[in-house]
Simulated scan of single mutants.
Amino acid sequence: MKMTGNTILMTGGGSGIGAALAQRFHDLGNTVIVAGRRLDVLEAACAGRENMHAVALDVESAAGVAAFAREVLARFPALNVLFNNAGIMRYERLDRARDLADAEATITTNVLGPIRLVDAFVEHLLGRGDGAIVNVTSGLAFVPLIGAPTYCATKAAIHSYTQSLRESLRGRVEVIELAPPAVQTDLTPGQSTREGYQPLTEFAAEVIALFGQQPTPEEILVTRVLPLRNAEAEGTHAQVMGHLTGLSEKMFAQLDL
Rank of each mutant, 00 (worst) to 15 (best):
R37C: 00
R37V: 02
R37Q: 12
R37K: 14
R38T: 12
L39D: 07
D40M: 05
D40T: 15
V41P: 03
V41E: 12
L42Q: 11
A44M: 07
A45V: 06
A47I: 05
G48S: 09
R49S: 04
R49L: 05
R49E: 04
N51D: 14
N51Q: 15
M52Q: 12
H53D: 06
H53V: 11
A54H: 12
A54C: 07
V55W: 02
V55E: 06
A56S: 15
A56N: 10
L57H: 08
L57M: 07
L57P: 07
E60L: 09
A62H: 08
A63F: 00
G64S: 09
G64E: 06
V65N: 00
V65Y: 00
A66I: 05
A66G: 04
A67L: 10
A67D: 14
A67R: 13
A69N: 08
R70V: 09
V72C: 02
L73V: 05
A74K: 14
A74G: 15
A74C: 11
R75G: 01
R75H: 04
F76K: 09
P77V: 03
P77Q: 09
A78E: 15
L79S: 05
V81M: 13
V81H: 07
V81P: 05
V81F: 05
L82M: 01
L82G: 00
F83Y: 15
F83H: 15
N84R: 13
N85K: 11
A86M: 11
A86S: 13
A86I: 13
G87R: 12
R90L: 00
R90T: 04
R90M: 02
Y91D: 07
R93H: 06
R93A: 01
R93D: 00
D95W: 12
R96M: 08
R96V: 09
R96A: 13
A97V: 01
A97L: 03
A97K: 01
A97M: 03
A97W: 00
A97C: 00
A97D: 00
